[in-house]
Simulated assay, not measured.
Amino acid sequence: MTGQTIGNAVAVRDNGPGALVAAHRADIELVMPSHMQARVGAWIRTTQGLLRRDEKLLEAAQNDVGQFMSVLLDAARLGLEPGTEQYHLVPRWNKKKRCTEITGVRGYQGEIELMYRAGAVSSVIVEVVRQRDGFKYRPGRDERPEHDIDWDLSLEERGDLRIAYAYAVMKDGATSKVVVLNKGHIAKARAKSDSANGKYPHLSPWNTDEEAMWLKTAAHRLTKWVPTSAEYIREQLRAKAEVDAEQQPAPFPAGPLPQPFDSSEPDDEAIEAEFVDDETGEVRS
């Protein structure tokens, strides 16, 4: 282990950003979805491991630990793993501060995970089309794209990326809107990326894994048409509960219960009255 590596390990363990992550375990666990809370320890160790392995990442985290924790809390709130295809941690140059800081970039697997977690879809398809692939989709006529791949060809033989597309199959079997993006769409998305155009573009996932970012861009566009929040499930359950309540018979009004019928009592009771004899005018009881 080199002196610099040892120094990085100490910074992570003793008083650096890695130690700060461990110290804020309760805050991280608090914002995490319930299904992730049992794994919070592994989640923190994974994040600390990223800092040990990547000197640029550690330096950016040390420059602004508040920004670093904000990014981590965002990943935790979404229930995504930092430093994976779910959620990238990328150093970004801040012109005002004149230093690098950490920014978070959702990966395509993170976008897909959020769609599945919302509970509205049974499957999500996100693919890229290369130059020698066959691709056909006619909006309004085709329910889903036709994508033909010659699996005997390597990625290089299949050619450059030319299209990314995404769609979801909903729980009721219907197909969501189909998103199709060409090179122009992808170029516009890349131009808006801080990480791709900052001081360290070589660290951006746009340059380290271009195909993944094409997939992410298509998946992100699909989120406009497919629920990505657990709030969807709660709304569906609430609506179902309201419909079920409307279909239930009205409850019997509160008050004294009716007396049971007793066949031993006479059907009619005598009623006292006075009768007037029309001829004599005499009143008789």
Rank of each mutant, 00 (worst) to 15 (best):
T2R: 08
Q4G: 07
V10R: 11
V10P: 00
P17D: 02
P17C: 04
G18K: 00
V21I: 13
A22M: 04
I28G: 01
M32L: 08
P33D: 00
S34L: 12
H35A: 08
Q37D: 05
L50I: 09
L50Y: 02
L57G: 04
E59P: 01
A61N: 05
A61E: 03
S70M: 13
R77K: 10
L78Q: 12
P82F: 06
E85F: 09
Q86L: 04
H88K: 04
L89W: 01
L89H: 01
V90Y: 01
R92I: 15
K96W: 04
I102W: 00
T103G: 13
G110E: 02
E111V: 10
E111N: 06
E111D: 07
E113F: 14
S123F: 06
V128T: 15
Q131Y: 05
R132P: 02
P139G: 09
E143N: 13
R144N: 12
R144H: 08
P145D: 02
E146G: 08
H147P: 10
I149G: 04
W151N: 14
L153S: 02
L153M: 08
E157M: 07
D160Q: 14
L161R: 03
A164H: 00
A164N: 02
V169T: 09
M170W: 05
T175R: 03
K177M: 08
K177C: 04
V178H: 04
V180N: 02
N182F: 11
G184M: 08
S193F: 05
D194P: 13
A196I: 03
Y200M: 15
H202Q: 15
W206E: 08
A212M: 08
A212H: 10
W214H: 07
W214Y: 03
W214V: 11
L215K: 04
K216L: 03
K216T: 11
A218S: 01
H220S: 14
R221D: 14
L222W: 02
K224C: 13
Y232N: 03
Q236S: 10
K240S: 11
E242S: 08
D244V: 13
A245Y: 02
P249T: 00
A250I: 05
P251D: 03
G255K: 02
P256L: 07
S263R: 11
S263H: 14
P266C: 04
D267T: 08
D268M: 12
E269A: 13
A270L: 12
I271R: 08
I271T: 14
A273L: 11
A273N: 04
D277G: 01
E282P: 01
